[in-house]
Structure formats: C-alpha cells, structure tokens
C-alpha cells in the first residue's frame, strides 16, 4: 500500500524582485510514490524544493498542478491529517506552556483522551530526554530541547507517517546519537518517514533510501542500487599500465589511473575478483586492493555535480 503518492506535482511561487513579481517553479512535475513502512531521506542543495515538497505533503500549501495523496486521501483532508505527524525545521511553542503541557495540548488536538495523552506524554518525555525539563516553561529551552519537544509533538498522536524537517538541528552529539536510535526504532516499528536533512552521514545510518531533489525535480531515487553501482575499487599497483587499461578491463568504467593506482567503478563484489585476475593475467603487479562503498554524501555530490 502506498503511504504517499505525488503525481505530476508542480508548485509555483510568486516572488517579488526589482523588476516586479516573477514566478518561480519550486517543484517541477514531480512524481513520487512511497510505500508504507519505508524511511526516505530527502536531500538536495539549498533551494532544491525539499521544504516545499514536505509542505505539499503536509497540506500546508497546495500544488499548482498535479495531486498529492497521503494514505490514499488528498493532502490536507482530515483523513490525510489523521495519518501524519509533522516536525518543522524551526519549532516554536507557546512560551507559557511547560514541555508536558505542550505535549498534552497536542495530544488533545490529536484526539487522545486525557489518560492516554498523559501516559504518552510521560513516555515521550522519558524517551526524548526531557523528563527533567518536563515542568519547565518552553521559553527558556535551547534549540536542541525544542527539537526534541517538536519530535515529541509529531509523535504524540502515534501517526503512521512522519514528516521530519531537519530533526537533528541544534542537537549535541549525544542528542544526535539518541535521535538516530529513536528514528531507527521508529523505522523498525513500521512507520513511514520522510526525513529532510543536510546531515547525510547521519541520514545514512537510518536509511539507505534517498530522494535527491535538484531544482524541484527528483534526480535519483533508488540509492541502494546507486550506491552499489558507484562503489569504487582502489587498486595499488607497481607496474604502470595506464595506456593498456581499456584493453585489460574493456567492460569496466575506469574512474582514474596513475602509475601507482587504478580506480575502477564496480557494481557487484564479484567483479573485484574478475578485475584483479585480469590485471594479474596482464602482468600487472598488485600491492593493495581496497573496495570503497560510496557514501550517500559522495553519491549526493556526484548527483549534484552532474549537469553543472
């Protein structure tokens, strides 16, 4: 079953400039389907349209073209909103409310009864490391504490779909590790999550599924395949063979070569043995072989640089 389905979605914004009002297309005919239970990392350079896409799915804005369905219902409909928990990039709370009151307030808006709301609030306060600050007013909270509380707010109604916009913003290293653990736990429990973040190294520890956005379009989707396709085999050599590589490895993409090293892109691990045996068979002396799986960050940078 599909949790989120975007079909031919475009979104235009009117932007004021010195020459008057011009139209900017933030999302361009984007089609995307996300199955239930998947965790998707939403990445892209600044201005790529990540927040716009999350806002469209959350129902904060409407598409100029196309449709957005959440749990099979149009975004912003009551049924769609029953399925989502949203965490904004810069969370703000009523300053006079304590952390516990904030959670109880959002629990009530999520239609929980008093006892359930209290139980869930207590559990989330413990889980998010806010138990000691539970009765403190929010106006004194640090950015990291506000982020934790915002995540609690998103989780209060126990929605099946979570839209998290930069959840690691302002968290200290311990907070980031705890957040990662929590996100992995939520992912294992079957939640569908879209996590927008610039921290690719952290995202990679939670999911291997990424949506790369660039200028309002998806650049690539199946990152697991992309990563393996772009694994790099680094081979240290004693015998220079730069000029003969096309003959020795005709079916492989050579990413770089020097007198001491050859870099070959491989799609599967078994290619390593083939490449090494062909090189040895051609009289190349090998002193080191190292397989470098491409990180999400490298894949992201390579996707961003393509077409520049």
């Amino acid at each position: 079953m599909l949790a989120i389905e975007c079909t031919g979605v475009s979104r235009d914004f009117n932007v004021k400039s010195l020459r008057g009002i011009c139209t900017v297309r933030a999302i361009q005919e984007l089609s995307l389907t996300i199955e239930e239970g998947r965790t998707i990392g939403l990445v892209g350079p600044n201005g790529a349209g990540k927040s716009t896409l999350i806002s469209l799915i959350a129902g904060l804005i409407f598409p100029s073209q196309g449709s957005v369905l959440v749990g099979g219902y149009p975004a912003r409909s009551l049924r769609a909103r029953e399925s989502i928990g949203y965490m904004p990039e810069s969370p703000v709370f009523l300053g006079l409310y304590t952390a516990r009151q904030v959670l109880l307030y959002h629990g009530a808006l999520s239609r929980l009864n008093g006892a359930d709301a209290r139980r869930r609030a207590n559990s989330l306060l413990d889980r998010l490391g806010l138990a000691e600050a539970a009765n403190r007013r929010c106006y004194g909270f640090s950015l990291g504490m506000r982020q934790r509380l915002a995540l609690g707010v998103a989780l209060m109604g126990d929605p099946p779909i979570l839209l998290l916009d930069e959840p690691g913003n302002g968290l200290d290293p311990i907070g980031i590790a705890e957040l990662r653990e929590l996100l992995c736990e939520l992912s294992r429990s079957g939640k569908t999550m879209i996590i927008s973040s610039h921290r690719l190294d952290e995202l990679e520890k939670v999911t291997s599924d990424f949506v790369f956005l660039k200028q309002g379009r998806t650049v690539h989707f199946d990152t697991a395949a992309a990563s393996s396709q772009q694994s790099l085999l680094r081979i240290g050599i004693l015998t220079p063979c730069k000029g003969r590589l096309e003959d020795i490895l005709p079916s492989y993409e050579v990413a770089g070569a020097s007198d001491h090293e050859i870099l070959v892109r491989v799609s599967e691990v078994r290619d390593v043995a083939t490449i090494v045996s062909r090189l040895v068979g051609s009289g190349v002396q090998i002193i080191r072989v190292q397989m470098e799986k491409q990180t999400a960050e490298q894949a992201f940078l390579s996707l961003c640089r393509k077409g520049e």
């Binding site: 959350a58 904060l60 904004p88 009523l94 808006l109």
Partner: peptide
C-alpha cells in the same frame, strides 16, 4: 510557524 503543526493535526 506554529500554524504548520496545528494544521497537520486531525
């Protein structure tokens, strides 16, 4: 920006 969270509540 609080409205963003309020609007997504059921």
């Amino acid at each position: 920006g609080r409205i963003a969270v309020l609007i997504t509540k059921p």
